[in-house]
Design a protein around this nucleic acid. Structure first.
Lengths: 139, 139
DNA sequence: CTCTATGATTAGAATGATTCTAATTTAAGC
DNA sequence: GCTTAAATTAGAATCATTCTAATCATAGAG
């Protein structure tokens, strides 16, 4: 069960990732991992931290998000050029992207069949992302 | 054959899109559509235009790319947060994304099977993008 | 428990992509 | 050829993100 870790507390997560459990990393880890899978931008997480009276700079939010991505605790999702989303669900899965609201919703990988994947001409497949873009109901 | 239009000249494309055939739009349309499917960033296209001695500002390149997207002549591809790619292939298809080089490669839609698509909880599916991210061959 | 070295955080400046603004130029129709 | 609406432009402005250099805090030694 590497995928979801509602059990692990923030401290253990940081230890496992070999990251010093500093005040702000602990706080950010809690905000990210103690309320189920969700998607945030750096700006949003910074806002949540402020709201929780955690003193943390935007630079540290960015640093921390990237460290978490490197440690495999988060996934970066590219759907919107010019804004990065970070996904606390690191299991193999896909997304609905609601173009009107800019919101993401997870789709478990077993809800979609993707088969017959072509081999890349070079290198190795690192990930397969399926994004279902959802617009306003068309007339 | 709405998808590929190697036949159409730039002038016809602009007329069909109800866009005034100005000097710079014509030149950009030629650069984009007269050499087969490919992927460009705004910066790249601007560079190509300069190289072709076409006087055009970066602002106009952006304006034109977006107008072409709105007219359905181009597709915007989100793979890299912080940089937009524009794809001259507007047919239903997917992509390899080479993380090391930042290059894209088309995959015809019939080369991948995506089935059993879930319905969105609201709105209508606008597009389904499959991105196969390719990294350095893993050890 | 205190000290120190290393690593983390910070504010603010810098960067890069993109968009905006206001002024100038150009295409289209008469 | 004019006139007018639309397009283009340079440069400023904006937004997300990264960098810089200085300050601060954690971990481990003693």
């Amino acid at each position: 069960m590497t995928a979801s870790r509602p059990y692990a507390n923030a401290l253990e997560l940081l230890r496992a990732a070999k990251l010093r459990p500093t005040r702000q990393r602990l706080a950010l880890a809690r905000l990210l991992f103690e309320k189920g899978d969700h998607h945030v931008t750096a700006e949003q997480l910074h806002g949540e931290a402020q709201a929780a009276a955690v003193p943390v700079s935007l630079a540290t939010v960015y640093n921390t998000l990237h460290q978490f991505v490197d440690a495999g605790l988060l996934r970066e999702v590219a759907v919107n050029p010019g804004r990065s989303y970070f996904d606390t669900n690191t299991a193999d899965h896909h997304h609905f992207f609601f173009e009107e609201t800019g919101k993401l919703m997870d789709i478990p990988s077993d809800r979609i069949n993707v088969t017959n994947l072509p081999e890349p001409p070079q290198g190795a497949i690192h990930r397969v992302d399926v994004t279902i873009r959802v617009g306003k109901a068309k007339a």
